[in-house]
Amino acid sequence: MEVLMPNTLDEALRALVKNQDAVIVAGGTDLWPRIRDLEVRPERLLDISGLSGELSYIRKEGGKVRIGSMTTIAEIYESRELDGPLEVFKDVAAKFGSPQIRNAATIGGNICASLSSEDYITLLLALDASVVLKSVYGERTLRLEDFIVDKRTVNRKPYEIVTEVQFNDMTDGWRAGFEKIGRRNTLIINLVNVAVALRYNGRVEEARVALNRVNRKVPGRARAAEKALLGKEIRGDSDLEEAVEALRGELSLTSDFRASGEYRVALAEVYFKRIVKRLVGVA
């Protein structure tokens, strides 16, 4: 096994185009246990930890929030930029692994791992985020929903590096909430996670709902539930019945030893309701 250790993004992109079989290592928290377990046996690694100076940032510019791919979960947790409705990023961080994991894990690694257990994918889908990929040939921006293809499969060319996630800042009534449910209080793989973003000004003007497993084995949007929310004035559970009904229809939460599918659906429904009610301020 060979390791390429560039110090700048430019160097990294040039190394990558020449070594397209190289597997990228960021924080390594997802990849390294798999290498150790002989699950993956790469010939070549491209270590991008040297790029953290360049790719670790949280910026608000021109109505957009941009988070560098090498930003760690701890940096997100402690960030001052992520205030107001953006505090939801901290709700995710608070239940993300352990403090030690948060110091190493990056948000870029989270989305590139592309699993139902990756919590930021769910939140970022609800924010309709985009992914910025760079290569020696230039840059392209893809909607996260198009980037996530399937379990462990993303829409990335072998010579590209994910450099940023970006999304519209939450203004004019936008708000978002996130819940993650596991079998203990911390250090958990989610049984279910739910993110909801709403533009609410007396009524639901826009809604985006994402969960860890919708239709595929990766997080996805629950579009029927979103639609059912539109135009609703929410005063209590009864205003959410239709949306919950819709949500139930589009969840494919399978059973395993951790929990049954039926229970996961029940959790998803309860927490979906709780988040929406919290977001609009009803008990």
Partner: peptide, 16 residues
């Protein structure tokens, strides 16, 4: 054994 690891075999943490 389907969960022979501490990722899926849960013991109480300080938060539990």
């Amino acid at each position: 054994v389907v969960n022979p690891n501490l990722k899926d075999y849960y013991i109480p943490t300080s938060m539990d």
